[in-house]
């Protein structure tokens, strides 16, 4: 029983990184309609920021290894990815829909390639290792330190959730939704559409950066391989299945898809004989893909569709 519990704790910790990213995407895509396909890039900025600030000193880097407290690493991760969001937003947010998607996709790939090649800071493909994990030095038992980490995740998710709920219910959130529904109308009402889009973009990127930082300090190793476009696609599937424009939907979607991702593999190995396990692995991708397609056909607004808000 303790094993199952210990696995579930680990499962929900990993899930948290997706939940937080999904919440960050929701403010950009779900509420404002900005098609940011660069999630992995901002996640990477956060992860590297925290890793460089909190990580140990390596013999072969010229910058980093400051060994700062983890909480400081996370705050800086939010700030730095927010700044990255600002810079990216300034140059791309005048673009619409698919043009924004293509440019953010390109920027995320470029960020990944920068991480791969600036070896004196990121150690390139060799990655940053032995990163500190909160509570790991206080409690000997990995079980207890994981419980603590899960509590941190729950606290962070709750804080982000309530902050976003307040934000989207406020007049500010109403402007975001009006931009999503009809940009011209919002502009005609005297709203500075670009500024609102930029603010939502920065907020979302900061949240994604925090997810990256939390990932880095939990997994304790990051390399550019962790920030490939597959991550972005996973988060999109989560948000769409969960229900874009609904923060609870973003959370539920992340849990459902990650559970499906994880359970499908146990299920496949349970059904298939060992001789075919290697081939059957591809079934997982098919299962997740099918769920997305079925969802889009039968319930395009997601598990928890957006509620009609009256902003006060």
């Amino acid at each position: 029983m303790i094993d199952i519990l210990s696995f579930l704790i680990f499962f929900f910790i990993v899930c948290s990184f997706y939940i937080i990213s999904s919440l960050g995407l929701n403010i950009q895509y779900g509420f404002t309609g900005m098609f940011n396909v660069g999630i992995a890039g901002f996640f990477a900025v956060g992860a590297y920021t925290s890793a460089i600030l909190t990580g140990p000193n390596y013999a072969d880097t010229i910058f980093g290894g400051f060994g700062l407290p983890i909480i400081l690493g996370w705050v800086c991760a939010i700030i730095v990815s927010g700044i990255a969001g600002l810079l990216v937003g300034l140059i791309t947010l005048k673009l619409r829909e698919d043009f924004l998607a293509i440019s953010t996709f390109g920027i995320a790939i470029s960020l990944q390639l920068v991480a791969l090649n600036v070896e004196s800071v990121t150690r390139g493909p060799n990655g940053l290792y032995a990163l500190p994990k909160p509570f790991a030095h206080i409690f000997d038992s990995p079980f207890v330190s994981n419980v603590c980490y899960l509590i941190i995740c729950i606290v962070v998710i709750t804080m982000i959730y309530y902050a976003l709920e307040r934000a989207v219910r406020s007049p500010w959130g109403r402007v975001l939704r009006s931009i999503r529904e009809d940009e011209v109308a919002a502009e005609a009402l005297g709203k500075n559409v670009f500024m609102y889009r930029l603010q939502a973009f920065i907020l979302g990127c900061g949240i994604m950066g925090l997810a990256g930082a939390m990932y880095a300090n939990f997994v304790r190793f990051i390399s550019p391989q962790d920030f490939l476009p597959i991550f972005t696609i996973q988060v999109y599937v989560m948000l769409i299945v969960g229900g874009k424009g609904n923060n609870l939907g973003a959370i539920v979607g992340a849990i459902v898809i990650w559970a499906l991702w994880s359970a499908s593999d146990s299920l496949i190995n349970f059904i298939v004989t060992p001789d075919f396990q290697t081939q059957a692995a591809a079934l997982r991708i098919i299962i997740v893909g099918m769920v997305l397609v079925l969802m889009l056909v039968f319930k395009p607004s997601g598990i928890l569709p957006e509620k009609k808000h009256v902003s006060g």
């Binding site: 094993d3 199952i4 210990s6 696995f7 680990f10 499962f11 990993v14 990184f17 990932y215 997994v219 190793f221 391989q225 962790d226 490939l228 597959i230 991550f231 991702w261 994880s262 593999d265 146990s266 190995n269 060992p274 396990q277 290697t278 692995a281 997982r284 991708i285």
Partner: peptide
């Protein structure tokens, strides 16, 4: 008995698969 899990060449999937093998399959 041999039991293989797919890492999908992705770290988060790999750590999840490993935890399942360790915690649930012993």
């Amino acid at each position: 008995v041999y039991d293989v899990r797919d890492s999908n060449t992705q770290a988060s999937v790999a750590v999840d698969a490993a935890r399942k093998l360790i915690d649930l399959e012993g």
